[in-house]
Design a protein around this nucleic acid. Structure first.
Lengths: 220, 220
DNA sequence: TCTGAAGTTGAATATTGACTCAGGTTTCGG
DNA sequence: CCGAAACCTGAGTCAATATTCAACTTCAGA
């Protein structure tokens, strides 16, 4: 289900990660690869990396066991491909909902709201990212390194423009990412009945009074 | 090593979780159980749950394979015992370093500093907690539920006393926990060369300006 | 229609590792 | 010093499943 939503983007990129010899050369091959990727996302998301089985993936995809190895070298390789993809998708989704926003404080709120929405719509893929910490740690670190670096840049920029108080931007970036991740875990993965905007607003209030150079309410 | 540091506390409690029939009845038994718990912490911490093997645990403990099953019902059971223990140890350690602090904002800084220090000293056990999300999800949720609940209470209390601005305390609690967790991951687990106090101060600044009812610098 | 490259198949292989158990050793109260 | 309870031992059982591979099918182009 969730996997389905991501399938379009997923199928566009994997050639970059997949060994050249494994790339599909025909329409049929492309279709099969996509089915396998979606199935893998669902299987990993539902059962976790170790409980997941290749036969589970191929069954979901309606393919034979051996077909998996036509497109992937190993179980871990698909997993990594999915993690990398999730990074791209997440950044893209948040960027879309934040671009055009003039000031950082508003961007913080909208970004968090977008993040929570995104996680809600991609629970299985999100679970894969989190589990990557134990399955493909380098992919996991990279995922957050890229996020933190971009975040830090935004903060430095906003600080220069006087939209936020100057401070330790790197630590701030990691702290803010941590906030998002846990709010996402608690209010998107574990329970998603509260409006995302509500959670985002509450957190934004916390963040804002921490970042605002003004002394008054700075919710933009 | 890290496991060693925790061994005293570890050995004191497990009887509560272990099936009654499995509790050691002699000095020798207690000693063996402790060795197994320490070994399990080291094995799980270093290799992760699935890579870890019972034989690895018993080898580290200098015991035979079968001995493991004298004290535990399964691989998962030891793991859960370690997660629960980590919760107790963490709360205790933070509480020790925070009690006596009069105001919440100072407590936030000291608490974060204590947390980072603690994680640095218990990397393997901390990794176990994080991996619990995928191995024993209920234990993981419980771990953070207890934290969040206590945190929320502290915030409500501080809010009533006027030490912090009133707000959405539950969301704040989760956000702040997320901060700590990620700062811990980044500056304790992944790299621990920066002074913990420095990280804590940077984060406290962020937190303080978000919580302080005063408009000025409120670092206590 | 023919051909071979691409794709598909699923039984077979090989490894791994949790857990059992029957038999030995240690401990300790009496 | 005895005997039973507690403890320890490690080879063996058993299930799971990642990966391989040789035979088979599809299909686009000549």
């Amino acid at each position: 289900m969730t996997a389905k939503a991501a399938s379009v983007e997923l199928a566009d990129v994997p050639a970059a990660d997949t060994a050249i010899s494994k790339a599909p050369r025909t329409e049929r091959g492309k279709r099969t690869l996509r089915k396998l990727l979606d199935a893998a996302a669902a299987e990993f998301g539902e059962r976790g990396y170790h409980e997941a089985s290749i036969s589970g993936i191929t069954q979901r995809a309606g393919a034979a066991l051996g077909t998996f190895y036509t497109y992937f070298d190993s179980k871990e390789q698909v997993f990594r491909a999915l993690v990398d993809d999730m990074g791209r998708l997440t950044r893209q989704h948040i960027a879309e909902r934040v671009t055009g926003t003039s000031d950082r404080l508003t961007a913080e709120r909208l970004g968090l709201e977008a993040f929570i929405d995104f996680v809600r719509g991609h629970k299985d893929l999100y679970r894969i990212v989190m589990e990557a910490q134990f399955v493909a740690e380098d992919a996991y670190r990279n995922y957050y390194r890229v996020f933190a670096e971009a975040y830090r840049r935004n903060l430095v920029h906003a600080s220069a423009k006087g939209e936020i108080s100057p401070g330790h931007e790197e630590e701030r970036a990691w702290a803010l990412i941590g906030m998002s991740v846990f709010l996402g875990l608690r209010y998107a993965v574990w329970s998603d009945d509260r409006p995302a905007a509500e959670i985002a607003a509450a957190a934004a209030e916390l963040i804002t009074f921490g970042l605002s150079p003004q002394r008054g309410k700075g919710m933009s």
